[in-house]
C-alpha cells in the first residue's frame, strides 16, 4: 500500500493548523482517489498532539503520523530537513505534498537534495496521467504556464501554493494517529535562532483574507500607505504591498504579495498605484475580482482588472473612502 500513499507535510503555527494544509488535503484526496491510495498527513514539531488530533478530524485524511522532536521548534531549515527526510524515507509515498509557504520552501529543496528526488515548486494543480504525476505551474512571473511530468522513480515531491485548492472541512471523525521516530543529526542543528520578533497580528491574515487592499510604488512614499490602510479599514480588508514597496523598505516583507511573498486569492483585490509587474501578478491573479486604480492607462494591471480606474489615486481614493463612509452611515 505504501506505493500509493499520498503524503502531506501538515503546516501549523502557534498551535493552529494553517489553511494551506487543508487545501493540500483536497489536492491529496483527488490524487488518492485516482490511484486508489491513502492520504497521510505527517505533523512534525514539538508538543503537537493536539494538532495531530485536529488533522485526524479533517475529511479526506486516512491516517495521521506524528513526528515529535524538541529540535523542531522554533523552525529552522536544518532540523526540519532531517525530520521530513526521515518521514519520507519511512512512508515511501507516491507523491509528497509540501505547502509552498516560506517554511515549506525552505526545507523542501534540501529534502529533495538529501534524498535525491526531483522537486517541482509552487504547483497550481496536480494530475495523474499514464501512472505518472503531472504538476502544473506558472513561470516567468505568472505569464506562462507549463505542465511538468515526473518521469523518474521515487516520490514525486511538490510544493503547492496557497489558494490552489479549496479547503477540506472537518467533521465528527477521527482518522487513526500513530507516531514515527525521527532522528536529527547534530550537523542539522548548527544554526541557532537567537531572536524572533513577530509582526503585527493583522498582517498574518493576508493569505486567508476575503478582501485585500494593496499599495505599490505609485504611492510615492511610505507615509502614503496611510491611504491604503484607510481604504482597507472601510472595506474591512487586509493590507498588502507590492515587492517594489517592500524592497524600498516602506512595508514589511510579511505584507508582500507576489513571487517571494504571499500568493493570495481573495474575493476582492484592490491594487492602488500598482503597475502590475509579473512578479506581483503571479501572487494575486487568482483573485475573484480585481480593482485597479493607476495613473498609467498602459499599466499591465488593467489587463487583469475586473474594474479599473485610470486616474490619480490621490484624488480617487479619498473620494472613494468618503462615499463608502457616507453610504455606511
Amino acid at each position: 500500500m505504501s506505493s500509493s500513499t499520498i503524503l502531506i507535510i501538515g503546516e501549523h503555527h502557534n498551535g493552529r493548523i494553517r489553511t494551506v494544509s487543508l487545501e493540500l488535503v483536497t489536492a491529496a484526496r483527488e490524487l488518492a482517489d485516482t490511484v486508489d491510495g491513502e492520504v497521510v498527513v505527517a505533523v512534525a514539531g514539538s508538543d503537537i498532539a493536539a494538532i495531530g488530533s485536529e488533522f485526524a478530524r479533517v475529511e479526506g485524511v486516512d491516517r495521521v503520523v506524528i513526528a515529535e522532536h524538541a529540535s523542531l521548534n522554533p523552525f529552522l531549515p536544518g532540523p526540519w530537513t532531517g525530520a521530513v527526510s526521515g518521514i519520507v524515507q519511512q512512508l515511501e509515498p507516491f507523491v509528497t505534498l509540501i505547502p509552498s509557504s516560506i517554511t515549506g520552501r525552505d526545507y523542501a529543496a534540501r529534502v529533495a537534495a538529501r534524498l535525491d528526488l526531483a522537486l517541482v515548486p509552487d504547483v497550481l494543480a496536480l494530475s495523474i496521467d499514464a501512472g505518472q504525476v503531472v504538476a502544473h505551474r506558472a513561470v516567468l512571473g505568472g505569464r506562462v504556464q507549463t505542465a511538468i511530468r515526473f518521469v523518474g522513480s521515487g516520490t514525486a515531491m511538490v510544493t503547492v501554493g496557497p489558494g490552489a485548492y479549496s479547503r477540506a472541512s472537518s467533521g465528527e471523525r477521527s482518522a487513526p494517529i500513530e507516531s514515527v521516530d525521527v532522528s536529527i543529526d547534530d550537523s542539522d542543528k548548527r544554526a541557532a535562532l537567537v531572536d524572533r520578533k513577530e509582526h503585527k497580528a493583522a498582517a498574518k491574515g493576508l493569505t486567508e483574507a476575503d478582501r485585500i487592499v494593496s499599495g505599490g510604488r505609485g504611492l510615492g512614499k511610505a507615509e502614503n500607505f496611510a491611504l491604503v490602510e484607510e481604504l482597507a479599514g472601510v472595506l474591512d480588508a487586509a493590507v498588502g504591498a507590492s515587492g517594489a514597496t517592500v524592497g524600498a523598505g516602506w512595508r514589511a516583507h510579511s505584507d508582500q504579495v507576489g513571487s517571494t511573498g504571499h500568493t493570495v486569492s481573495p474575493k476582492l483585490y484592490v491594487a492602488l498605484g500598482i503597475s502590475g509587474a509579473p512578479q506581483h501578478l503571479v501572487g494575486m491573479s487568482g483573485s475573484d475580482h480585481v480593482v485597479a486604480i493607476n495613473r498609467d492607462p498602459d499599466a499591465p494591471i488593467f489587463k487583469i482588472a475586473s474594474f479599473g480606474i485610470v486616474g490619480d489615486l490621490f484624488d480617487v481614493v479619498p473620494a472613494l473612502i468618503a462615499q463608502l463612509k457616507s453610504a455606511a452611515d
Partner: peptide, 24 residues
C-alpha cells in the same frame, strides 16, 4: 527526471470595465 510541456501563455483577458478620464 522532469519533462516540461511547451509553455503556453496564461489567458489574461479580464475584459473588465475601465473608467478613463472621469472626475474622481
Amino acid at each position: 527526471r522532469l519533462e516540461w510541456s511547451v509553455p503556453t501563455a496564461v489567458e489574461r483577458e479580464a475584459d473588465g470595465i475601465i473608467v478613463h478620464g472621469a472626475p474622481a
